[in-house]
Design a binder for these strands. Structure first.
Lengths: 123, 123
DNA sequence: CCGTATCCGATAGGATACTG
DNA sequence: CAGTATCCTATCGGATACGG
């Protein structure tokens, strides 16, 4: 029996995840939990505030991360993965493993790994 | 126990698959088998020969498709998915299904679906 | 039939300075 | 701390014309 999957919805998402920094942000937030703006910027060595800001907004519009404002003095902001973000992250792992296994072209500038626990993947 | 997956190799690949037409080419070749250049161009309504040519070369460099020359008069060319291409295709299906399920932004211009048989996925 | 060559506009992304 | 505002460059991708 045949099934179809349409690419159309993917193209809405690919505009987001296929950006240089998006997956790295998802990795960092998933690895280490909530982060503030400048904290993220330090972690993602080399990203400019403009690009970080734009990327975060897009990720939020797509419901992959959440932005929470903490009313302290000075006010702080907390970015973290949404449930959708976690789902995406878990779907990316098989893809990453496949790409790693087959080798090929590598980026040398990327210092970030995606850390996950085996149990989490199995559940 | 913790595991790590590095994003580095993915960035070599994402440069390729995160292009507007790459996934569509993989879908078409997977759905319908080998295709010639102009045949592909007709199928992917709207792609220019320059972009098609470049995209095909990149996909080939990454070992996702193969290019075979048929020595007839006039000579023809046959593009088809490599084994790696088929593997990638099968890994994309869960991602597509997830994106479809959650809805969200859709592209209206994309007329192409990825057709697969259930059996193939289970094996 | 299978592409390459050329021109062109839109966008991504980096650097830097600055504001609430 | 959390961003915006500018400027600048490189690349992507579309249109069209042409060559093997």
């Amino acid at each position: 029996m045949e099934e179809e999957v349409c690419f159309c919805p993917l193209y809405g998402l690919i505009d987001v995840i296929a950006k240089k920094w998006s997956l790295l942000i998802i990795a960092v937030l998933g690895n280490e939990g909530a982060k503030g703006f400048n904290e993220l910027q330090r972690e993602l060595k080399g990203i400019s505030p403009k690009v970080l800001s734009k990327t975060l907004r897009e990720l939020e519009e797509h419901g992959l991360i959440t932005r929470e404002i903490i009313s302290t003095r000075p006010p702080r902001v907390k970015y973290s993965l949404s449930e959708s973000g976690w789902e995406l992250r878990s779907l990316l792992i098989p893809l990453l493993k496949w790409v790693s296994k087959r080798g090929g072209r590598k980026a040398t500038w990327c210092p970030i790994r995606l850390v996950h626990e085996k149990q989490k993947l199995d559940k």
